[in-house]
């Protein structure tokens, strides 16, 4: 017979170990006891119910396109070959990719671009801006953060056109008119054609920094004041407070921004497309995502090589996944998540 009684319940224990998977008292307390299996089933259904919407999105917008991309990369699909769309050609596209004369250069470009922008701007400048603007009067801090957000409110094309104006060669560019002698004896050596990477990284960095800045600012502001007071009383200088208290306490936002920005830098190319189109010259500032785009959609001699573009893309996705896993491991992501206090739903 099923009982409602407390005493008869075998699994009630006040000293239940934390990792025990015995169902908790809370669920079955005022209900007839269900079988353990039944309750486990219900818990599973609940869990998947909550996960469902997110999983559907991942499925439709990541898994399915990924699989299509993978299939595509084993075919010869292009605008010149449209009547035979699914012609299987094995690893031909991949061997073509890896033996491409410019493959090493594009790879180097990509990593240089991603990590220089990430470290100097999306993390470095963002953190600096957050630290500085949280240490000034509130209104002033707010104003400066707003200024740094402006590029985000500007359409990409307008933003890049402005930079192109700034970066034009002597004597036209704004920069070269203002500082004809600043970075070199005769002036005019800092212009788009002469230092393309400087401009590529600046244009991306100035926009990219604001995202981290906002996230870091809110994280820094949520550090309890008492902690900072305690650190000051303990004898910490401003620098030690930043190093020993503030940075460790915003570890989670730092992880998030690093991961998120690495991946978004890895896959974004529109600023480079508009600014230099990978030039000047051959592949000087061409990055992986731009190559994938060009192979797939820009036509070479009237031919858009969709399948070959897909091959570049699928390799990029793979690299991104590996990096993402690497980040999670490196930052000990699991340790950041506190054990839930509620042991059973």
């Amino acid at each position: 017979m099923r009982t409602f009684g407390l005493l008869e319940k075998g699994d009630i224990s006040l000293t239940k170990p934390l990792d025990s998977d015995v169902p908790d008292v809370a669920t079955g307390f005022r209900r007839p006891q269900r079988s353990a299996l039944g309750r486990r089933f219900r818990a599973t259904v609940t869990a998947y119910g909550f996960l469902g919407p997110a999983m559907a999105l991942v499925l439709v917008f990541f898994i399915v396109p990924g699989i299509l991309l993978l299939i595509l990369s084993f075919t010869e699909l292009s605008s010149a070959n449209f009547n035979d769309p699914w012609s299987y050609i094995g690893f031909d596209n991949f061997s073509r990719l890896f033996t491409d004369r410019f493959f090493p250069k594009i790879l180097r470009n990509t990593f240089f671009y991603v990590f220089t922008t990430l470290i100097l701007f999306n993390l470095g400048l963002a953190l600096l801006l957050a630290l500085v603007t949280t240490n000034m009067p509130r209104r002033a801090g707010f104003f400066f953060r707003l200024v740094w957000l402006l590029p985000r409110l500007t359409p990409s094309v307008v933003y890049i056109l402005m930079w192109r104006r700034i970066g034009q060669a002597d004597p036209f560019g704004i920069y070269n008119q203002l500082f004809p002698e600043f970075l070199g004896a005769s002036g005019g050596n800092l212009f788009l054609g002469g230092s393309p990477w400087t401009f590529v990284i600046l244009t991306n960095g100035f926009i990219g920094a604001s995202f981290g800045m906002i996230i870091f600012t809110s994280a820094l502001e949520s550090i309890p004041k008492d902690l900072l007071t305690a650190a000051k009383v303990d004898g910490a200088s401003l620098w030690r407070i930043i190093r020993d208290i503030k940075i460790p306490l915003i570890k989670w936002p730092l992880l998030f921004i690093s991961t998120y920005q690495t991946l978004s830098l890895l896959t974004s190319f529109e600023y480079i497309l508009l600014l230099t189109d990978g030039g000047p010259g051959l592949f000087t500032t061409e990055v992986w995502a731009l190559t994938a785009y060009k192979r797939a959609f820009a036509s070479y001699a009237g031919n858009s090589q969709w399948a070959f573009g897909a091959t570049w893309a699928i390799v990029l996705v793979t690299v991104a996944l590996i990096l993402a896993v690497g980040y999670v491991k490196m930052f000990k992501f699991n340790e950041l998540i506190e054990e839930p206090r509620i042991e059973n739903l």
């Binding site: 008492d226 007071t229 305690a230 000051k232 009383v233 570890k251």
Partner: peptide
């Protein structure tokens, strides 16, 4: 503060959680 030779105890404890 660091040169005042003081120790401080808070209601919130203010321990460094990391």
């Amino acid at each position: 503060p660091k040169d005042r030779g003081i120790g401080m105890v808070f209601q919130s404890y203010a321990l460094y959680p990391h």
